[in-house]
């Protein structure tokens, strides 16, 4: 392209008055030929524009919202959790009557059993009390010292 024509085109370009066809001429010129140093700034602008046009959208258009997916996953998770807690509590309730708690119906037998149980507790209690003899020994020794003073 002749320099005169080029300069006038560039002026028109800067005024925002070039047509697309004229802008294509400019693009072609700046992409192929050796550019005079004083026009290098234009080359940068056209090179930048060309470079930017090569960018492409990296994903694929999706017509379902990601937010929506998480929303449903959330609902599904809370339903599962609710079912889990519900069945777990039901299991506990069912287990209780299944255990034989040893309830005795006959009052006489119940009295006997209770007595046995209390007796056993008392024996164990007394065993424990024997060990407290050590404490008496300790008290004796302590009193000895106190009395000596």
């Amino acid at each position: 392209m002749e320099l005169n024509k080029l300069e006038s085109l560039l002026k028109k370009y800067e005024e925002g008055n070039t047509t697309l066809a004229e802008e294509k001429q400019l693009r072609d010129y700046f992409s192929s030929e050796e550019i005079p140093a004083h026009l290098r700034s234009y080359k940068m602008i056209f090179a930048f524009a060309a470079n930017e046009k090569n960018r492409t959208y990296p994903g694929k258009p999706q017509l379902t919202s990601k937010k929506g997916q998480f929303f449903f996953i959330g609902i599904a998770a809370s339903i599962l959790l609710a079912i889990g807690v519900f069945t777990w509590q039901n299991n506990i309730r069912e287990e209780l009557p299944e255990h034989n708690l040893g309830t005795i119906e006959d009052p006489q037998e119940a009295y006997q059993k209770t007595k046995e149980a209390l007796q056993m507790v008392a024996e164990v209690f007394n065993d424990g009390r024997e060990d407290l003899e050590y404490l008496n020994e300790f008290n004796k020794t302590k009193n000895k010292f106190i009395n000596n003073q």
Binding site: E14, G16, H38, R40, S41, I45
Partner: peptide, 23 residues
């Protein structure tokens, strides 16, 4: 649009010239 376009084109070139003093 033309006014805006003219401004942006001039502005970019102006800034480039400031940085490089091409020309």
């Amino acid at each position: 649009i033309r006014v805006s376009l003219s401004r942006v084109r001039k502005k970019i070139r102006e800034e480039l010239l400031k940085k490089h003093s091409y020309g």
